[in-house]
Design a protein around this nucleic acid. Structure first.
Lengths: 340, 340
DNA sequence: TGCCATTGTCGAAGCGCTTCGATCGGACCT
DNA sequence: AGGTCCGATCGAAGCGCTTCGACAATGGCA
C-alpha cells in the first residue's frame, strides 16, 4: 500500500503538503498542487481510512440502524437504506449497517469506539429504549419516525396524520359517506409504533371534520384474516363504499377478497392505499395512493446529519407533506347503495 | 473519551498490559487481569476503533455489496443482508453497506483505503466486471452467486441446476407429463445472471431425463404480461398440467390469472415455486416450493470470509442443495386431459 | 530602502492503539 | 549454590495521517 510519505517523496515535497493538497485546507501554489496530484495518480495513492480517522477524529462513516421486525414492509425499508447510502456517498461518507436487535448497547458500541461519527435510526417507537441512549451519545443522530418525547432529538417522518386525513378527504370529495381504515396488524399498534397511531388520528379527525362515517380496524397479514376482517366490516357497516389501506402486504389479498365477495373496484368499492408507488402501480386496477417518500426521507436524514456534523443546526422535527396520486381504484360511489 | 493510557494509570500497569489483557495475546497473571478488568468497567473504556485498526492493520469490518436492480426480489436480499450482519457480529466484525452502483471502483475504494478487510458481493453475473477487480484486490472476498470464470474466487450459491431439476422431478413423480417453467423477465436472462440460466438448464435436463415435455418462457412483472404469457402457453401447449415459477413478484398475479382462466390449483394446474418460504406460505393455496436458503448462504459466506482472514482455506465453490417442500399447490393431474 | 503582511512550505508533534524485544524475578533442575 | 527457563510486565517504536507553529520568500507600501 502506498503511503503519503511515498507520494511526498515522489513529488519532492513534505507529507504535510500532500495532505494540504488533498484536503484543500491551506493554499498551495498551483505548480506544487499539480505536481502532487500527478504523483498521487502515478502511484495510485489512497489515504488510509483508519489513519485519517485517528488523526482527524472523523471516521466519515454513518451508522444506519434498520429494524428487523414483523409488520415492517421490507421493500420500503430497502428504499430508505439505499437512499441513505447514496446520499451519504454524495457527502463522502460510508454507511455501517446495524440491525435493531443489537439494541441500545449496539449504538453505544459503535459510537463510543468512534467507529462512526453519526447515526440514522429507523423505525422509532413511541417509547423507544434507544432514545435516552441517543440523547446521551457524544455525536449527532437523526431518527426516522418519532418518539413520544422527542426533546433534544432530530426527527424526520412522513406526516402520517395528514396522510390519514388526505385519504379521507379524497374519498369524501368523491362523494363517499362511509369509509373504513384497514390498518396494520394489531401488534404494530400495541407496540406503539408512531406511524400507525398517527394515521389513525388523522383518519378519525378528518372523518369527523367532513361529517362522514369513519370506522377503523387492524388487520393481520394472512389471507384468511383479510377475508374475515372485510366480511365483518361489511356486515357491521353495509354502507361502506371506501377503504383506506395502510398495510402493504395485504393489498394483494384484499383485492382477491373483494373480487371473491363480488365487489368491483372502484365501482362498488373505492380504495386508497398508503404505500410505495410501485406497489400501487402494479396492482389491478392501479391503486390511488399516498406514497411513502422513502427516498426523500433518507436523503433528508443524511443531509440533516451532515449539517449537524458541520456544526449547523436543523429543525427538531421535519414532517414531510403527504402526496396523494389518484389512480384507477377510486371513483364516485355508484350502484345499489347511495345515489346513482 | 477514555483512552487505554487512563485505564493503565487507573489499574497501575502499563498500557501494553491493558492491551494484552484485552486481546489475550500474552499471558497475564489473574491478579493483574482482574485489576485491569475492574478499571475497564469503572471507566467505561472502549478501545478506539481507528487506532486499533491503524495499529493492527485490521478494521474488523466487512463490506457487503448489495444489488439495486430491477428483477431482484428485495425481501430475499434483505434476508441475506441480515444474515450477513448477524453472523459478522458473531465474529466481532461490523458490516459496511455498499450499493452495486458504485461499481468496481467502489470496491477498490473501500479495499485500498483499508476501510474494510474483506468483501461479500451479492448478485454476481456471469460476466461481471467486478470479478477481475476482486481477483486483484489485496484482501479476501466471497461471491454470492458465481461468474463464468470463477478461478481464484470463493463462490457460494444455491444449486439452481438441482433446484430446477427437483421441481421437474416433483411434478413428474406426481404423474405430470407436460410442464412449463415460468421464468424471470427476459432482461435477467439477457444480462446473464447465473441463477436464471442454471435453473433453466436443470429444468430442461430433468425434463429430458424423465421423458416429460418441458417448455420454458420468461415472464415480465406486470399483470398483463403474466396473463398474456400464460394464455399463450396454454394455447401452444394445452396439455400442460404443471408450472414451475421462478419469479417471486408474479406469484400473486399468476394465481389471479389461473383463477380468471378457470384453472383450479392444484386440481387443474399444479404449481411449484422457487421462492422464500414465507412467500409460499402466504399464498392461497399454500405453494409447494423450493426455498432460497438466504440465511444459510449469508452465514456461510461470512464464515468462509473469516476463515480466509485467519489464513485458512475454503472450497472455491459451495453449492447448497435445494430443499423442496410439498404444500397444497401440487397434486396428481386430474380432470379432462390425461388419464383420470 | 526598510518594514510589514501575505503566501507557500516544512518539520514535528500527536491521534490511541498493538506489538516487539527486553527485563526481572522466581521456580526448577543439577 | 549456580545456571536455566519461563511467566509476567514494561517501555518504546511504530501504524499513516492531520494540523499547528515556524519560517523563508515575496511583494506592497511608506
Amino acid at each position: 500500500m502506498v503511503t503519503i510519505a511515498e507520494v511526498a517523496r515522489h513529488a519532492g515535497v513534505a507529507a504535510s503538503t500532500v495532505s494540504y493538497v488533498l484536503s484543500g485546507k491551506r493554499s498551495i501554489s498551483s505548480d506544487t498542487r499539480a505536481r502532487v496530484q500527478r504523483s498521487v495518480q502515478a502511484l495510485g495513492y489512497r489515504p488510509n481510512a483508519s489513519a485519517r480517522a485517528l488523526a482527524s477524529q472523523r471516521a466519515n462513516v454513518l451508522a444506519l440502524v434498520v429494524p428487523l421486525r414483523t409488520g415492517m414492509h421490507v421493500p420500503v425499508m430497502m428504499q430508505f437504506a439505499t437512499s441513505v447510502v447514496t446520499t451519504a456517498r454524495r457527502f463522502d461518507h460510508d454507511v455501517l449497517l446495524l440491525t435493531a436487535d443489537e439494541g441500545p448497547e449496539g449504538l453505544e458500541r459503535v459510537a463510543q469506539s468512534s467507529l462512526v461519527d453519526a447515526l440514522v435510526v429507523m423505525d422509532v417507537e413511541l417509547h423507544d429504549e434507544r432514545v435516552p441512549v441517543l440523547r446521551e451519545l457524544p455525536m449527532p443522530s437523526v431518527l426516522i419516525g418519532y418518539p413520544a418525547d422527542a426533546d433534544g432529538l432530530t426527527c424526520i417522518d412522513l406526516d402520517f396524520v395528514a396522510a390519514g386525513a388526505q385519504c379521507v378527504d379524497h374519498l369524501a370529495d368523491l362523494g363517499h359517506h362511509s369509509i373504513a381504515l384497514l390498518g396494520t396488524p394489531s401488534a404494530v399498534y400495541e407496540r406503539q409504533t408512531g406511524f400507525a397511531q398517527r394515521t389513525l388520528t388523522g383518519f378519525v379527525d378528518a372523518a369527523g371534520r367532513r361529517g362522514v362515517l369513519g370506522v377503523e380496524t387492524p388487520c393481520e397479514h394472512t389471507f384468511d384474516a383479510v377475508l374475515h376482517t372485510v366480511e365483518q366490516l361489511l356486515r357491521d357497516h353495509p354502507g361502506i363504499t371506501g377503504l383506506v389501506v395502510q398495510n402493504e402486504p395485504i393489498i394483494g389479498p384484499l383485492l382477491d377478497v373483494l373480487r371473491r365477495l363480488g365487489r368491483r373496484v372502484p365501482e362498488d368499492m373505492s380504495l386508497v392505499a398508503i404505500c410505495a408507488d410501485d406497489v400501487a402501480e402494479s396492482q389491478v386496477p392501479r391503486l390511488s395512493s399516498v406514497t411513502i417518500p422513502a427516498e426523500q426521507i433518507g436523503l433528508q436524514a443524511v443531509e440533516s446529519l451532515i449539517t449537524k456534523l458541520e456544526g449547523g443546526s436543523v429543525p427538531a422535527l421535519t414532517l414531510l407533506p403527504p402526496g396523494l396520486t389518484a389512480r384507477a381504484s377510486s371513483s364516485q360511489p355508484t350502484g345499489h347503495i347511495g345515489s346513482p
